[in-house]
C-alpha cells in the first residue's frame, strides 16, 4: 500500500483501522508503523475523537413497552386473520365438494324415463307384467 491509498482510506474511514475494509487492513497496519502513516492516522483520529463524543441515549422503557404492545396487537390480529382464512378455506372446500357432488350425480344418474313408461300400470321393477303378447295371439 502506498501513502496515497493509505491517506485516502484514512480520509474515508478515519484513524481506527478496525473500520477499514477488511482486505486492506493488513497492508494498512504495516504502513501505519511508518512515520507518514502515523501522522496521517493522528490527523484522522482528531475528528474520530470528536465524533465519539456524540452519544445517543439508550431507548427508554416507555418506547420499549409501546413497541412490544404494538407487536402483541399485530400477532393477535394475524392469528385472527389466519383463523378467518382457515374458515374461508374450509367453506370453499365444502362448496367445491357440493358442486363436485352435484356434478357427479348429474353425470352418473341414468336419464329419467319418459312419463308414459313410468306411469304404465303394467311395469314393475321386475319388468312388464302385462299380458304376454304371444299368449294373446294364441288366445286369438
Amino acid at each position: 500500500m502506498d501513502a496515497k491509498r493509505f491517506a485516502a482510506l484514512a480520509a474515508a474511514y478515519g484513524g481506527d483501522l478496525r473500520r477499514w475494509p477488511e482486505a486492506e487492513r493488513m497492508a494498512g497496519t504495516i504502513f501505519a508503523a511508518s512515520e507518514a502513516g502515523e501522522a496521517i492516522l493522528k490527523h484522522a483520529g482528531t475528528l474520530d475523537a470528536r465524533l465519539d463524543s456524540y452519544r445517543v441515549d439508550a431507548p427508554g422503557k416507555a418506547l420499549h413497552g409501546s413497541i412490544q404492545q404494538a407487536a402483541g396487537r399485530h400477532l393477535i390480529q394475524r392469528r385472527r386473520q389466519r383463523f378467518w382464512w382457515l374458515g374461508l378455506g374450509l367453506a370453499g372446500i365444502g362448496l367445491a365438494g357440493a358442486v363436485a357432488g352435484l356434478a357427479l350425480v348429474t353425470v352418473v344418474t341414468p336419464e329419467v324415463q319418459p312419463d308414459h313408461y313410468v306411469l304404465d300400470a303394467n311395469v314393475t321393477a321386475f319388468g312388464d307384467t302385462g299380458p304376454d303378447r304371444d299368449t294373446i295371439e294364441e288366445d286369438l
Partner: peptide
C-alpha cells in the same frame, strides 16, 4: 408469532434503530 422472539428482536434491534 413467538412472543419470546419478539422480545429478543426488540432488545437486539431497537438501540441500533433508534
Amino acid at each position: 408469532g413467538d412472543p419470546a422472539a419478539v422480545q429478543t428482536l426488540v432488545a437486539r434491534k431497537l438501540p441500533r434503530i433508534l
